[in-house]
Amino acid sequence: MGAPVLLLALTLFPVAAEASLEPHYMVVFPAVIHPSQEEKLCIHLSSLTEAVHLAVTLEMETKNHTLVEQDVEKPGTFECITFQVPELTPWETDASASQSEEVVFLHVLIHSDDSVLFEGRKKVLVKPQKNVILVETDKALYKPGETGKARR
């Protein structure tokens, strides 16, 4: 019983090996990004058979912002890239004020010299970071009439 199973496994191995040689692409990007702040995206490209060009663009209504543009040559590349999110201006969005949220698109293009290997477009929320003021006191709770002491 062991020999037929081993024979079956050996006959299926070349099929599985061929399937794993196809290029695989993964781009991880936050669903919410904040203007004028640094954000991070990560890429993983495996089983590359040739050098590819990666371009990641933030598509807004009137203007596109290129976040990443680079050539990737080696297979199994995993890299996290930091980029600066551009400040949204009222003429780039439907918003009348720069303090509102806006939905934009992230466009990822991976291509070789002669063909497009992957192209994807996803929605991303651009949301201004809210400032939070934290006041720390010397006690968790005060009784009515007690004087509070704040720390710097």
Rank of each mutant, 00 (worst) to 15 (best):
A31E: 07
A31W: 00
V32C: 11
I33Q: 07
H34L: 02
H34D: 02
P35R: 10
E38K: 11
E38H: 11
E39C: 15
K40H: 01
H44R: 13
S46E: 06
S46R: 05
L48I: 05
L48Y: 04
T49P: 00
T49F: 01
E50F: 00
A51Q: 12
A51C: 07
V52M: 06
H53S: 12
H53I: 06
A55T: 15
A55C: 13
A55M: 12
V56F: 03
V56L: 09
L58P: 03
E59Q: 14
M60N: 14
M60L: 15
E61Q: 04
K63N: 10
H65L: 05
V68R: 13
E69C: 07
Q70W: 00
Q70N: 03
Q70S: 07
Q70F: 01
D71V: 09
D71L: 07
D71A: 09
V72Y: 06
V72H: 08
E73I: 08
E73K: 13
K74Q: 15
P75E: 02
P75H: 02
E79I: 08
E79H: 11
E79L: 14
E79V: 08
C80G: 13
C80A: 11
C80S: 11
I81D: 02
I81K: 07
Q84V: 12
Q84G: 07
V85I: 03
V85G: 00
V85R: 01
V85T: 04
P86R: 08
E87M: 14
T89W: 06
P90K: 04
P90N: 06
W91Q: 08
W91C: 04
W91S: 08
W91M: 06
W91H: 09
E92S: 01
E92Y: 02
T93S: 09
T93W: 03
D94Y: 13
A95I: 00
S98L: 02
Q99M: 01
S100H: 12
S100E: 13
S100Y: 14
E101H: 11
E101L: 11
E102N: 08
V103H: 05
V103D: 05
V104R: 06
V104S: 11
H107E: 13
H107S: 15
H107F: 11
V108Y: 03
L109S: 05
I110K: 01
I110R: 02
H111G: 08
H111K: 15
S112R: 04
D113F: 11
D113W: 10
D113N: 12
D114I: 10
D114Y: 11
D114T: 14
S115L: 13
V116P: 05
F118C: 00
F118I: 00
G120V: 00
G120A: 02
G120Q: 02
K123R: 05
V124H: 12
L125A: 10
K127G: 02
P128G: 04
P128W: 03
Q129S: 08
Q129E: 09
Q129H: 06
K130F: 03
K130M: 06
N131P: 01
V132A: 03
L134Y: 14
L134Q: 15
V135D: 09
V135E: 10
E136T: 13
T137W: 02
D138G: 01
D138M: 03
K139L: 11
K139E: 13
K139N: 10
K139P: 05
L141S: 14
Y142R: 09
K143F: 03
K143H: 06
P144K: 12
G145Q: 08
